[in-house]
Amino acid sequence: MLSSVSNCSAQSKYRSHYISLSDITLVADMTGALYWPSKSMLIIADMHLEKGSSFAVRGQLLPPYDTRDTLLRLAQVINFYQAQTIVALGDSFHDKKAFDRIGREDLEILRQIQIGRNWIWIRGNHDPQICSAAGGECLKELLIQGLTLRHEPNPVQGKHEIAGHMHPVAKLKLYGHSLRLSCFVLNQTRLVMPAFGSYTGGLNVLDPAFIPLFGNDELVVWVQGEQGLYPIAKRMLRKDYAAC
């Protein structure tokens, strides 16, 4: 019947882009991961593992492949950059019981990609505790070269930070086609990462929730296409509704 969707080619010249945050050079990848070359560190946010099975608990039996898909994509991007340290920026697990629900094979994939690497779980609101069986180290936040890596962006003290939590998406209208795509959103000092999980939805970057973080000054948006990552001018962005 249907054959599987072809994977994006790693050679795409749009695959990744250098971005600069507080004068530190980082690489934004089309998968939604962020690579810090000088630290050999790969950062991903909001995997929401076992989100699918959380619906099953309530009787909605969604395809139970989100965890596998998320972990396989993660394995690919780790392999691509040969990263030594992995930082999961919170909401890695969809809920407190998510880890108990992971299938045996999927857990094995996680174990495999952790071997020989430093693994840091940042706690998020969905996963305030992380089971020690998940391996790695568990932190509230992480400070490196003046940049704080935390789950929820902090508009008060959080200058110079990399955060997740928001699941930013950009809505575009191009030649009558409406697109709604996950994106990185940043200014000089703050970066909010797209959600990495396979079943995660998103919040429009023009939503008022982003105003305390980016004010009205120029923000930069990089959207995830099927084959690459593309910068989008702010004037091209659309709201979800003409809400008031």
Partner: peptide, 11 residues
């Protein structure tokens, strides 16, 4: 068929 062509053009 592919949104990427459009995205590329505006990028």
């Amino acid at each position: 068929s592919q949104p990427d062509d459009l995205l590329r053009s505006i990028a």
